[in-house]
Design a protein around this nucleic acid. Structure first.
Lengths: 194, 194
DNA sequence: GGCCAAGTTGATCGGTTGATCAATTCGGCT
DNA sequence: AGCCGAATTGATCAACCGATCAACTTGGCC
C-alpha cells in the first residue's frame, strides 16, 4: 500500500536548513493572519506541525524570529507591488485596504522596535529599501527632487494606514487624499495623477 | 510624635473615587515611561503603592484601563500644545522628538486597536479631536479647504513619528520636511512657514 | 466606645510565555 | 544488518499574566 515513490513522500524528517525554512514560512503565514504578536514558540510549532522545542532549536530567540519574519513580509510586499506601473497606481495599491495584515505587522514592528534592537535594525533596513523604491518611481515619473517627496509620501502612507487599523476615516478616499497631496508636493496640477 | 495636622496626613485609605483617580494617574505615568504594554495589574499596583487586587477592583478589565489611559494621554498632549500659536510652531513641536513617549503610546494603540474595541473607539474619538484641532489651526492660518490638508498632515506627522521609533532618519529635519509638504498642499510659496 | 460599611490586602487559580534538555526516533551510510 | 549522528519530541522550569475573593483593616458615625 505504501508507495516508495521518487516524489517527496512527505518525509517527516527534514534537513536542518529545510526545517528552518519551513518554520520561517509557517511563522510568516501566522504573522500575516494574526500579527507579529501571535508569534509564540507554541503557536508557530503548531502551525508548522512541529514541537515547540524544535522551533526554539532553529531560532535564535523570539526577537530574532520576529525580526526575520518582519523582514520577509516587508520584502515580499515590495516584490508584490514591484509589478505595479506608475506612481499613482502604486499609491492606490498601497492604500486600498487589501494589505491590512501587512499594515498591522508594520505598526507592531514600530511599536516593538524600542525593545527589540534586532527588529529595529530590520525595520530601518526595510524602510531604506522602500524609500529607495519610491524615490526611483518618483524620478521615473518626472520628479526633480524625489528624495524628500518620497519620504513625506512614505510617512503619509504609513500614517494613514495606521489610522485605518482603528477604523478611523474611510479607507476609500485615502488614495485620492494622498494623490492630491503628492501632486501638490511635486508642483503638478491637480488631476495630473488621476 | 505623631502630628494630627489638618493637612492631609497622607491617609492610607482614600475615597473610592479618589483612589480610582490616583490609580489612573499612576497608570498614566507608567504608560508614559514604559508604554501601554507595561500596564499590568501588578505593575500599576506597585507604582501606585497599592495591592494588585485593588487596581482590578477599580477598573473594568485591562482593556478598559488601557483605553482610559490612552485617552487621558492624548487629551493631555492636546492640552499641552493648545498654547502653541501658529501652525508651523505646532508642527515643529509635534515632531521635535520630545514626545517620543507619547508617540509610542499612539503606535501601540493602533497596534492593539484591532483586538481591543474599547481602545479602538477611544482612538477614533481622539483622532477626531486632533483632526478638528488641526483643521481649526489651518483655517486660522488662512487655508481655504483645511479638512483634507489636516487629515494628510495628521497622517504625515503620525507616520514620521512612528518611523522615528525605529530610529529611522534624522528627527532633526522632520519639521522642515512636513512644513515644506504643508506649504505645497496649501498652495503657498516655499518658505512661507519658515 | 463600639460598630459597621467601605476600602484594602494578598494569596490563589488557571492560563500563558520563552527557554532548556534528557530522551527518543529516524535516515542514511557503512 | 547495524549503527551513529542528526532531527525531533515533549515534559519541565521559572516567570509572568488577569481575575477572583475571603479575610483583614480602618475611618467615621451613632
Amino acid at each position: 500500500m505504501h508507495m516508495p515513490s521518487t516524489t517527496t513522500p512527505a518525509s517527516r524528517r527534514l534537513t536542518g536548513t529545510a526545517r528552518r525554512a519551513a518554520i520561517l514560512e509557517h511563522a510568516t503565514a501566522l504573522a500575516l493572519s494574526d500579527g507579529l504578536a501571535a508569534l509564540t514558540l507554541r503557536a508557530v510549532g503548531q502551525r508548522a506541525g512541529v514541537a515547540s522545542g524544535l522551533v526554539a532549536h532553529y531560532v535564535d530567540g523570539m526577537d530574532a524570529l520576529v525580526a526575520e519574519v518582519f523582514s520577509g513580509i516587508s520584502a515580499g510586499e515590495r516584490a508584490e507591488v514591484a509589478g505595479v506601473g506608475g506612481i499613482a497606481p502604486l499609491v492606490r495599491t498601497l492604500t486600498d485596504g487589501t494589505r491590512e495584515a501587512v499594515t498591522l505587522v508594520w505598526v507592531q514592528a514600530w511599536a516593538a522596535a524600542p525593545g527589540n534592537p534586532v527588529l529595529a535594525a530590520a525595520v530601518r533596513a526595510e524602510m531604506d529599501a522602500w524609500q529607495t523604491m519610491l524615490e526611483a518611481r518618483l524620478r521615473e515619473a518626472g520628479a526633480s527632487d524625489p528624495a524628500p517627496v518620497a519620504r513625506a509620501l512614505l510617512g503619509m502612507i504609513d500614517g494613514v494606514n495606521a489610522h485605518s487599523l482603528a477604523g478611523w476615516q474611510d479607507r476609500a478616499d485615502h488614495a485620492a487624499l494622498l494623490l492630491r497631496a503628492l501632486e501638490a508636493m511635486l508642483g503638478w496640477a491637480p488631476g495630473t495623477l488621476t
